[in-house]
Design a protein around this nucleic acid. Structure first.
Length: 230
DNA sequence: AACCAGGAATGTA
DNA sequence: TACATTCATGGT
């Protein structure tokens, strides 16, 4: 199982963070929207663009479905109509309903109490809900519950593989652990870090590992087998 | 017109 | 464990 080929250091990670932050600035992911919308958004955006997820979120809001009680009790068909623009609408509808039901069963429908559970406990509860995998669980932990849980996604893998920090093939939890061992638990840092990795991944280095004009280019262009960090 | 987008579950060997 | 398939809409 998979491990990072060499330990990621705090200095390396903060160097990357600073390069990205200086290049793109603050990303303001999920500020102020209310925790339920954050969670619903996290589920809706699975394997679809954020703009499509937002359309669905908007339809849910206008249909008055954005509450745990309505997600639990409303006719599935009405939820599906709203979720449709986000794609996979049958599955995502069931995911939303299962989430609402889980909060009901585990915290009496008190979302704040549910999110107030200790991080590791809450992570397990989230992962036990069918339709919420590790990435969505960590996004909910970080952006809704404001716990210092580092989010790993395909962009994270790709960037840090090119930086020579990952070999490829590491497990999700292995990568997450590597980041969390190297960095102090810092919600604001993890929040911005993941958003910046995504922001960067969307506009750079899509196909080839060498990228002129890339903010992390000096670190990124590494001949195979050579050290990426000088 | 294939390919991608802020994944996860299920099935097969 | 490792890899393929399914879910499905909308922009490029």
């Amino acid at each position: 199982m998979a491990y990072p080929p060499r330990a990621m250091t705090r200095e390396q990670l903060l160097t990357v963070f600073r390069l990205l932050y200086d290049a793109y600035g603050p990303q303001s992911w999920w500020p102020g929207n209310g925790v339920l919308e954050v969670i619903v958004g996290a589920i809706l955006t699975q394997r679809t663009s954020w703009t499509n997820a937002e359309r669905a979120l908007d339809l849910l809001r206008r249909a008055g479905l954005l509450s745990l009680a309505r997600l639990r009790d409303a006719a599935p068909e009405s939820i599906r109509r709203a979720v449709r623009p986000a794609g996979c609408y049958r599955e995502k509808t069931e995911k939303l309903r299962r989430f609402a039901k889980a909060v009901e069963e585990r915290a009496g429908g008190d979302l704040a109490a549910f999110l107030g559970l200790p991080m590791d406990r809450l992570r397990m509860e989230l992962l036990s809900i069918r339709g919420i995998g590790p990435e969505t669980a960590d996004a909910i932990l970080l952006y809704a519950a404001e716990k210092p849980s580092f989010v790993v996604d395909a962009y994270t893998r790709r960037l840090f593989e090119r930086l020579g920090c990952l070999e490829g093939g590491e497990s999700y939890d292995g990568i997450r652990d590597a980041f969390m061992r190297a960095l102090e638990p810092d919600v604001a840092l993890f929040n911005e870090f993941h958003a910046l990795v995504v922001r960067h991944g969307k506009s750079h280095c899509r196909v080839v590992p060498s990228c002129s004009g890339c903010p992390v280019g000096a670190l990124c262009v590494r001949p195979p087998g050579e050290e990426a960090w000088g």
